Simulated scan of single mutants.
Amino acid sequence: MKQKIRFGVIGTNVITEQFIKAASKCEAFELSAIYSRTKTRGEAFAKTYGVKHVFTDLEELLTSDVVDAMYIASPNALHADQAILCLNHKKHVLCEKPLASNIKEVEAMIEAAKANQVVLMEAMKTTLFPNFKVIKENLHKIGTVRRYFSSFCQYSSRYDAYKAGTVLNAFNKELSNGALVDIGVYTIAPMISLFGMPQEIKASAYLLESGVDGEGTVIFKYPHMQATVMYSKISNSYLPSEIQGEEGSLLMNKINQLDTVTIHYRNGSVEEIAIEQDEDNMIYEVQEFIDLILKDQKESQINSYQFSHDVMKVLDEVRRQIGLVYPADLKDMDKA
């Protein structure tokens, strides 16, 4: 019988539900424990999935020896402290994107993972999609790349509540939220994975009264190309994302799904290069994470420490330019 990896989950939200649905397709996955701040919510969530271990004290969960790994889907401001606690208890950690609030938290998390010799991986799903690999393998077909453009603008269902006077998590600065880190990161992470770090960054954004960004635009300069990304939680866009080369352009219908990828060549011909992906597309990040544990490898070669560090470095610079400071930025990690 194949070895099972016993998972605990932090967070009883829609993202966690999607994670469990996808992870359940992985042979080595076993859901063993639920952590929730409220017992009632935790028990209700556990009942849905037939889980007997429910905790409202994270330390108690981590010392109970019922889990090997933890999936963290709590608010962004809690990621670092919770992940470091898990890592210090020798538990492998798969942490939702963004990995943390800022670069100093990311560095502290990486340090804890290395010190405890356990896996830490950011759950940036798109870079692990089969179609992202297809993009990498076919990028040469469009010749010298001159422009990367990505748009992810999705009107948030929580924005109506915000306009009515209720500030939910998605627009709460105390929780290190906002459009950039919620969906803007989906436009930036693939760019860094494909082309590395930019030479220059110029960012602008519209800040809401709650203090977070509702939408933004960032222009990046590379030695031989430019990149532009647009993101929003207060309006919709139906534009595809695109990589423009001298011999053609590669179009991606949805940067966070990548289920359609097409090359439009300069001579007028069109090539569909996408392959079929699992509809529960979080399966790829879960399988990557589980494989690392089973193979006793401490770091993903795709969603690597350096990759997460680079992405967060860019997010920090964008926030600096648009004037978005989180309470977490003022926290001393040495005293966390």
Rank of each mutant, 00 (worst) to 15 (best):
G8D: 05
E285S: 15
P98H: 00
A205M: 10
F132Q: 03
G184A: 13
S232N: 05
F55Q: 07
D280I: 04
S269I: 06
I84E: 00
Q18V: 04
V167F: 08
Y71L: 12
E288I: 11
R37L: 14
E60W: 00
S24F: 07
M70N: 10
Y206F: 14
S157H: 05
M109G: 02
K90S: 15
L87R: 01
H264T: 00
V54C: 05
S232V: 07
V325Y: 01
D280W: 11
L61A: 11
V54H: 07
Q321C: 13
I183N: 14
P240H: 00
L294M: 13
L139E: 04
Y49R: 07
E272Q: 14
Y231M: 15
Y231F: 11
I84C: 04
E299H: 01
E111G: 02
I275W: 10
R158W: 06
K133V: 09
A189Y: 04
F220S: 06
Y326T: 11
I34E: 05
A44M: 03
Y148T: 08
G268S: 02
S150P: 13
A77N: 08
A83S: 03
A69G: 12
Q287H: 12
S232E: 03
N172C: 13
Q244H: 08
F195D: 08
H79R: 02
Y265R: 00
R41Q: 07
L168F: 01
Q199V: 08
K313V: 14
R37F: 01
Q226F: 09
D213F: 15
K125D: 11
A108T: 08
L139C: 09
A336H: 06
T16P: 03
V145K: 06
E215G: 03
G42V: 15
E272L: 15
E200Y: 06
G214W: 09
A77M: 01
S193D: 09
T16W: 01
V119E: 01
I15R: 04
T262S: 02
Y148F: 13
A113P: 15
K25S: 10
L61M: 15
A46L: 09
L94T: 03
L315S: 14
N281T: 04
I243Q: 03
Y162R: 11
N236T: 10
N303F: 02
L292I: 12
E137P: 05
A113M: 04
N177P: 02
A80T: 12
N236L: 05
S151C: 08
Q306C: 05
K233E: 15
P75Q: 02
D65M: 06
M252W: 14
A112G: 01
V185N: 09
S32R: 00
I234S: 01
D329F: 13
Q3Y: 02
F171S: 07
P240F: 06
Y159E: 05
V93G: 09
R266F: 00
Y162F: 12
D334Q: 14
V181Y: 03
E96S: 15
D329K: 04
I201V: 15
D81S: 13
I243M: 10
Y265S: 00
N169C: 01
K104H: 14
A108L: 07
E59N: 03
F220H: 02
S232G: 07
R147K: 07
V118K: 02
K2F: 02
M282Q: 09
C153L: 10
A23P: 13
N267H: 05
T260V: 14
K47A: 15
I84F: 06
A274P: 15
P327G: 04
Q257M: 09
K298Q: 04
